[in-house]
Design a binder for these strands. Sequence first.
DNA 1: AATAAATTTAGACTAATTCTAAACTACTAG
DNA 2: CTAGTAGTTTAGAATTAGTCTAAATTTATT
Lengths: 136, 136
Amino acid sequence: MARAVETPRSEDKLTRQREAVLQVIRAREDHPTANEIFQAARLNLPTISYATVYNSLRFLKEAGLVHEIKFGDGASRYDRETDRHDHAICNECGKLVDFDLPQTAELMQAAARKSKFKAASVHLTLKGVCPDCRAT
Amino acid sequence: MARAVETPRSEDKLTRQREAVLQVIRAREDHPTANEIFQAARLNLPTISYATVYNSLRFLKEAGLVHEIKFGDGASRYDRETDRHDHAICNECGKLVDFDLPQTAELMQAAARKSKFKAASVHLTLKGVCPDCRAT
DNA sequence: AATAAATTTAGACTAATTCTAAACTACTAG
DNA sequence: CTAGTAGTTTAGAATTAGTCTAAATTTATT
């Protein structure tokens, strides 16, 4: 009897290069830029190209495996996709830190009511001074 | 008797081109990009250059007269500086709308506690579907 | 009027990202 | 296996947003 046709899952299309990009992001505590990811991925897969890093990032975003963060100045940064969370940015050293505000369900409702949008997500950005910079 | 020396205020340095840029931003309900501002400013001041638009935007930002919004895709957008407010972005048509969440003092405290940052500001971004797109 | 200081201009430059077209790989049917 | 085709990767060109530079212009100061 023939094996049942399996529903393809996003992992099925994880090529070597997409895998490499994903590994880089998962291995890091910080939020690397596309360029940093490219540099790191080349260590494992020396022929990978810049365009492929971008293609892979798009693929991984769409598959919900990584998350793109765009702010302020310069390049996008990428996050391994964990739970919903918020970001704090240090006005002095530029450091970007994750945190999570628990009451987001209510926040989302309140924001939806005020904006008249149907809310899909809410995200909070705090700007301020990080603990390290406060110490100095 | 000589007139007292006046403390210079930011308006003192409002040159013709900075004024023109500011007028464009104030006259619009939406959130134009630098390029849109450039196009519009040229109608009043045909010799204004692209670089001057950027210089003026920097000046006006520093003077607290306009506010820069950077998200998602593409170019920065500019807002006339009103009160603190939040932004909703439509996932379907890309429209960007202002709204204000009242309880931001508490939010800022909560976020500061969670992130361990000294908070200077918080900003909420809602993604979802705008009323127009819901209607269709 | 002469000098200095600040601002504007046009265009060159840079950085981030996307596009393009050719080469490569994997899968599908005969 | 073998041709066909669909999807992916590659390198480099192209595009976009924004900054930089140096000369020209304007404004303010003596």
